[in-house]
Computed example of a mutant assay.
Amino acid sequence: MKKTSTRLADGREILWYDEHPDRDGVVRNAETTHDTRDLPRVVPASQLRYDALAGEWVTIAAHRQDRTYQPPADQCPLCPSRDGRATEVPAPTYDVVAFENRFPSFGSEPGSPPPDVSGPDPVAAAGRCEVVCFTSDHDRSFGRLTPERVRTVLEVWADRTAELGARPGVRYVFPFENRGAEIGVTLAHPHGQVYAYPYVPPFPQRMLAHAAEHLERTGENLFDAELAAERAGERVVVAGEHWTAFVPRAARWPVEVHLYPHRATTDLPALDEAQRAEFPVVYLELLRRLDALYDDELPYVAAWQQAPVRPEDGRDLARLHLRVHTVRRGPGKIKYLAGSESGAGAFISDVMPEAIAARLRELA
């Protein structure tokens, strides 16, 4: 795989990841990837505001109200540029590309300090938001990619984690994919995103706090203990030599599956060759079963949980894993986050995790 960096018309960086550039005669440079559009430069305008009662940062990104929303397929901004129509990807084809989001939740000011002080005044939401397009084929979902392409995407996630994590002010890197209109996806083209946060988000922060308490009390890593218990239990869905996918015993969502590497691994760059080689096989099998659950492509969020950048944020406690969940609780039925979930933060599930795990095993 070859990585090439060029610029879009408004100055945003785009990264090309070509699987076989020598074989296919692909040449990526400023001339062959020239963006012909007349675009204004992206001016970061997001703010961080601290919710003192919840103890959490909230990002205000009002400019995102104007982002592209569910265009028809022939107007998709993530498809290759061709037939005189210029898109976000200035080339007639591509394997995988990553580029700075045109409507970012976080700005890109280099060297901005992280928001350590939780005062009442807004601060600049420094960081970076990238879009990752998995394929140039508008109609090919992640679950129908080839194992080679999934391996390429995994390498891109690892590369972006390492590069963004090295940027000043970044404390947490979060690769994820949203799929399906029911999830809230605004662009149907198969893609994901990578957020480089200037703080550790609430969910991983809470997990790491519990892991620290568990280590102090028992001397063992909480993530490792949970994985060992699940691997020995009845909720395993897919198991390989290096990865296991299971429905957690306290699943919040109607269908929720966690995918862990067996070897204790902090983040995506720390994956070894054996883990990287097996991941496409296990993950594609999991996605096939999820899509077969209701005889339809399942809308989902697939989110990588990994170590924060800083040691003082609990980096050594973290264990890399992927969490996949859907809001669909049955054919034509949606699990809405209503009063208990939205108002009190208390999830109530209508589905037994053991029943979902058994059904997914049957769909092998």
Rank of each mutant, 00 (worst) to 15 (best):
T135E: 01
T135H: 01
P77M: 07
A196T: 04
D137F: 02
Y199G: 08
A250C: 13
M207Q: 14
G345I: 02
H34C: 08
L268K: 00
A338G: 07
L8E: 15
H262Y: 08
R206N: 08
G343P: 10
P311S: 09
R167D: 13
D24Y: 08
V26N: 01
W57S: 05
L222A: 03
V324F: 11
G169T: 12
L284R: 11
V200T: 15
V327T: 01
A209Y: 12
R82W: 05
G111F: 14
P168W: 06
L290C: 15
H258V: 05
H63F: 15
R217F: 06
R102T: 10
T32R: 06
A30N: 12
Q305V: 07
A162L: 00
R7V: 15
P147Q: 10
T266R: 10
P147V: 10
V132L: 01
P198H: 05
I334E: 10
E230Q: 13
P201V: 09
L322C: 10
P77V: 07
P80R: 05
D116C: 10
Y300L: 11
S5M: 05
N29T: 09
T93L: 11
W253Y: 14
D38M: 08
I183K: 10
M1A: 09
G180R: 08
D295W: 15
P80V: 07
E130W: 05
L284T: 11
G184H: 11
Y50W: 15
R179C: 04
T326Y: 14
T186W: 01
L187M: 00
V185Y: 10
A303Y: 11
E226V: 10
D22Y: 00
A162S: 00
L164A: 02
R7D: 15
E341P: 15
Q47R: 12
R171M: 11
V156C: 00
T4G: 01
I356G: 00
D291K: 04
W57P: 06
Y199K: 07
A338C: 07
P104K: 04
Y50P: 09
T161M: 06
E278T: 13
V281G: 13
N178A: 04
E273K: 05
T152D: 15
R289M: 12
D35Y: 14
N221M: 14
G119K: 03
R289K: 12
R67F: 02
Y94D: 05
E285N: 03
F176E: 09
A239R: 08
Y195D: 05
A166H: 07
V255C: 15
T33S: 04
R179A: 03
E100Q: 15
E130M: 14
H138L: 12
